[in-house]
Every structure is written in structure tokens, then in C-alpha cells.
């Protein structure tokens, strides 16, 4: 299915008030963030997209693909569903080794070359995780971060879904700067539910939620991109700090000097 654009038309929030933004149009290749405090309706909005709501969810919103309602056979058969949704609670329950599972999934999704799709998926996942996962391990043996990394990689490479929804990947302990960079190599629609300023500012635009409604669309401009770059440097500091702690090192005051280019970092010459 060739998807050119996805449109959300507004519905109502928790207490029945109308969405302030009546229409959101997302074009193929766009990266969009949904932002707002906890309980503001971010997950409900992403659920609406995942379900291709059409006046049949509590929000009464409608989702159009290329200007039309998605035919029910496309949403009924998950292998033909154009959306991959990576939710917050993702534990694998499958008792299969990673390699076997991915092989089956790639065949179900009729990948042309199953083995290379599996390899690409594992490589993609391992660029996001701190500790690389071994494809011979059982799915249930993976850590939370590895699981989430594998799900993202699977959705992008094997699922090859044109629309990818990600609910709070920043909580997964994966390298989100790297994730965003890698994801942008694939031409897809990415919708992030996020509390992460970096992800929000790197997006093309963000949907601001309040009290269950879409209240505002904010497009990122050049100044925000520059700010995003600064945040990325800040992230690097935090990542480096995390690495130090993970390696069992001591941290000293003044670690902020760890900005890229600094000579000394965390007490190390």
C-alpha cells in the first residue's frame, strides 16, 4: 500500500470538549511528536492512529489514509496493517530464540530475502542497545532495552511498515539520538509520543495535548533545530556519565566539562 499522507480530524477530549486543532496532516517522511503532560491524552491519540479510528472510539476522531478511510481488510490482517505500534509495555512472551522468531516473522511478512532481513534487523537493534543482543538467545532473556530495540528494528526492517508509532522510547534505555538518526534513513511516517525535548525538537512538528484534546501544532524552525543540537550535546554528557557509572568508575564534581571537546572528564585525564 502506497501511503502519501495521513490525516487526523479532530474529535473530543475527556470531558467532551472539542479538539482545538481540527485537522492534522502528516506527509510521508514526516517525523511528528505528540507532547503534553501525563494524562493529557497522548496515548489515546496514538491509539486512535493505531486503530484507524473512524468515529468509533471515545475520542470520535477520524483517521484518513490518502484522504480515505482504511479498508477494514487492511486493519483486520496484521501482516497487511500499514502501522507498526511500539507500545510502552513490551515484554516478549515468546519462547523462541530471537533468530528463529525473526525468521518466522520475516516469512510471514514475505520478505524477499529472509536471512538478510533478519541480519539487518539484529544489526539495527544492536546499534541502539548498550549491550548487543545475541540472536541465539531466547526472546524472553532479552533486557528491557534490548527488547525495545529489537521491536523497533523489527517494525522498521521486517515489518517494513510505512507508519511507525513509538510510545515513549526514551524510557527504554536505548540510544535515542542514534535511534532518530537511523530511523531517518528510512522514508516513513514516524509518530513519537514523547517527553524528550530532543526528540520533540528534531521532529518536523509537534502536536500539543491538554485535557485529552489536541490544542496546538508547533512547527520546528531553524532556531529550534539549533537548540536540538545543543540538547544532543547535553545528551552526550549524560550518556558519558552513564557509561562511567556503568563501568564502575567514580564521578567527580565538574562533570559538565565533559562536553564534547573537553580535555578532562569525570576525573579521567
Amino acid at each position: 500500500m502506497d501511503i502519501e499522507r495521513l490525516k487526523i480530524t479532530g474529535g473530543i477530549g475527556k470531558s467532551g470538549q472539542a479538539d482545538g486543532v481540527f485537522e492534522v496532516e502528516i506527509k510521508m517522511g514526516d517525523v511528528v511528536s505528540i507532547v503534553g503532560p501525563t494524562g493529557s491524552g497522548k496515548t489515546t491519540l496514538i491509539d486512535d492512529i493505531a486503530l484507524f479510528a473512524f468515529d468509533n472510539t471515545p475520542s470520535r476522531r477520524k483517521i484518513f489514509i490518502n484522504g480515505e478511510r482504511l479498508p477494514p481488510e487492511a486493519s483486520g490482517d496484521p501482516a497487511r496493517n500499514p502501522v507498526a505500534f511500539i507500545t510502552q509495555h513490551t515484554n516478549f512472551l515468546s519462547d523462541l530464540p530471537v533468530f528463529e522468531f525473526l525468521k518466522i516473522h520475516a516469512s510471514v511478512r514475505s520478505s524477499a530475502d529472509v536471512l538478510s532481513a533478519v541480519e539487518e534487523t539484529v544489526n539495527f537493534a544492536n546499534q541502539l542497545t548498550g549491550e548487543p543482543l545475541d540472536p541465539h538467545n531466547g526472546m524472553t532473556e532479552l533486557s528491557g532495552g534490548q527488547t525495545r530495540a529489537l521491536l523497533i528494528a523489527d517494525a522498521v526492517v521486517i515489518g517494513n511498515s510505512p507508519i511507525i508509532l513509538l510510545d515513549e522510547i526514551e524510557n527504554a534505555g536505548i540510544d535515542r539520538g542514534r535511534a532518530l538518526e537511523l530511523l531517518k534513513n528510512y522514508k516513513k511516517i514516524f509518530v513519537f509520543v514523547t517527553h524528550d525535548p530532543g526528540i520533540a525538537l528534531m521532529s518536523d512538528f509537534r502536536i500539543v495535548m491538554k485535557n485529552g484534546t489536541m490544542t496546538k501544532l508547533v512547527h520546528s524552525d531553524r532556531a529550534e533545530r539549533a537548540a536540538a543540537e545543543e540538547i544532543r550535546r547535553l545528551d552526550e554528557v549524560v550518556l558519558r556519565l552513564r557509561r562511567l557509572i556503568r563501568d564502575g568508575e567514580k564521578v567527580e564534581a565538574g562533570f559538565l566539562n565533559c562536553l564534547p571537546g573537553a580535555r578532562r572528564c569525570g576525573g579521567r585525564p
Binding site: A79, T90, F92, F101, I104, H105, S107, R109, L151, A155
Partner: peptide, 10 residues
């Protein structure tokens, strides 16, 4: 997960 759903359904 969606990936497991697809494999289970298959």
C-alpha cells in the same frame, strides 16, 4: 507485541 501477534496468527 505486534511482531508476536503476527507470528502467533501465522
Amino acid at each position: 507485541s505486534q511482531a508476536e501477534r503476527e507470528v502467533f496468527r501465522a
